[in-house]
Computed example of a mutant assay.
Amino acid sequence: MGNSGDDLKSFLWMLVEFIGICLLLAAVPFVVFLDTSVIGDQMSETSLTELLHNIGAFVATICFYRGAVLYPEQRACLVIGATLFAILSIRELDFLFDYIWHGFWVWPALVTLAVGIWVARRSPGTFRRPFLEYLKGRQATFVYLGFALLIIFTRLFGTGDLWEGVMKEAYDPRVKAAIQEGLELLSYTLIAYGSVASLRAGFAAPFMRS
C-alpha cells in the first residue's frame, strides 16, 4: 500500500510538472505576440521578450551560484555553470554596455570568466565527477537542451538567408527577428526551469551519494 501511495504522489507530481512546462512553453509565443501586436515593440533591446531573456539567464546564474555555496563537493562544476550563464546575461545586456562604448560588454564578460576560473581552481576535484553525475539527472536535460538550442539552433534557424529564401520578395526582417528572439526565449525558459529544478534536486548530490 505504501508503494502505491508513493507511486500516486509521483504520478501527480509528474502531471503537475507536465502542465507547468506546457504553460511555460505556451507563454513564449504569447510574449512575442504581446511585443509585436499589443505593445508594438518589434523586438528591440528593451522589449518584453529581451527582458525575459535577461531574467532567464539571471535565474540560471543565481541557481548555479547558490548550488556552489550549498554543495562544496560540486563547487568547481557549479561555479563554471554560474560563470557561463553570467556571461550570457552580460551579453544580453550589451546594449547597456554600449553606452560606454560599442562592444564594451566583452570586458566585463572576460573579467567574469577569469574570476569564475579562479574560484573553480580553488576547489580541485569538484568538477569532473560532479559534472558527469549531474548529467545523469533529468533536470540537467532541460539545461543542456536549452543551451544547445540557444547557441546552435536559434543561430542557424534565425539567419536572414534562410528566411529570405523562404519569403522571397515578401521578406521582412521583423519576421526573422520575432522567430529568432522567440526561439531564444524558449531556450532561456528551458534553461531557467532546468536550473531551478536542479537546485531543488541538489544538482549531482543524489548520484554522488549512491
Rank of each mutant, 00 (worst) to 15 (best):
F157T: 00
R128Y: 10
V196K: 02
G165D: 01
L88K: 01
A27S: 15
W101F: 13
A120S: 13
G182Q: 02
L199W: 03
T141K: 11
W13S: 09
N3E: 13
L135F: 06
R75M: 08
V32K: 01
G81E: 10
F64N: 02
L162Y: 10
L48T: 15
I90M: 06
V196W: 04
F30H: 03
G146I: 08
A57T: 14
A82D: 02
G2H: 07
L132P: 00
P29F: 08
F11D: 10
G158M: 04
A120N: 07
F131Q: 03
F142M: 06
A68L: 09
G2F: 09
G146M: 05
S47T: 15
V59H: 14
A76T: 09
A27E: 08
V16R: 03
A60I: 06
L78F: 06
I39L: 15
I191S: 01
E133F: 07
L162K: 12
W105N: 05
G81V: 08
F33W: 15
I90C: 05
L162D: 01
T61S: 09
G125I: 01
C77S: 10
F104R: 15
K176D: 00
L15A: 09
K9N: 07
Y171N: 06
T126Y: 02
T159A: 08
S47Q: 11
Q74S: 08
R174H: 06
D7S: 14
